[in-house]
Design a protein around this nucleic acid. Sequence first.
DNA 1: AGAAACTCCACAAAGATGTG
DNA 2: CACATCTTTGTGGAGTTTCT
Length: 284
Amino acid sequence: MANQTDSFHLFNELSEHVTLRIASCSALYHPPHWSESKQHPDYDLWIVLAGTVNLRMGGVSGSAKPGDLILFYPNVPYSASTGEDGCRFLYVHFDFGIGDRSRILDDFSLSGIVPGAFVSEEAALFRRAFERYRNRSAVSSVRLKGCLTLLLSRIIEHAAESGASGFDPSPSTALPKKGTVRHMDALQPVFGYLHEHLQRPIAIRELAELIGMSEKYFITYFKNTVGVTPGYYLYQVRMNRARDYLYLEQYSIKQIAELLGYPDPYTFSKAFKKYYNRPPSRFV
DNA sequence: AGAAACTCCACAAAGATGTG
DNA sequence: CACATCTTTGTGGAGTTTCT
């Protein structure tokens, strides 16, 4: 499997377009020898509080102890059971998307058991947020959403750091993907190329040629996979970079325009003002 | 105003799946 | 097994929108 690291840039470049929608969140207790086999229509995250959850998913088995997390992808069948002690866990159903895509995690191998050691701080915050949420205290839904964002960020971050292609068990490689699931892998060269050649004008046609697709199909493929069009993604990356350069206070507007592949400072300035509602000269 | 980016749509090849 | 049907993947034309 191709290295996912380049694709993870996406979350930074498009952070303001990330949407997280929590469908439900609750605590559950299951008695000894409970078992179930099902699948969920959306993402589902379990935070094991007590007992052991035995999991079988995508032909791989594992056990989740208190503190561990289990991340389920939509429409992936699994079997879960518990032993002598029963089990207790929090669950949260959610969707996590960017732009037009509501299931952006599908292209990353993150599902399965996440060892508690990697996420202990974030999971603890989420649990406290859940207590407030259960008591219906003011803004607790916003807090819960924030804590889930934090928790998911940590899971993604860990996968990026370790170059991991998933936790154990990882069903995403074994899973027969149907429907409109797109593969981020094919776009790897594009992300690399984009970040490398930011200092000169980049035509969409070049990017399409890079991975051997027709220009129009490339635009469609990119949008279905990433959630925004390639042109918009490029614009977004340039505006993020422009903001960073301005904060450094080391470059003139003219220099930044050059660094970002704009033909002249006027074009850059116009693009910048459109994005940030302020000209670059009055940004910092 | 002209070029580039983008959308929509029709269509085709190839592979997967269903059925008698 | 053979044929039909559906799905996925991809192309290209035509037209619209956005950018410079």
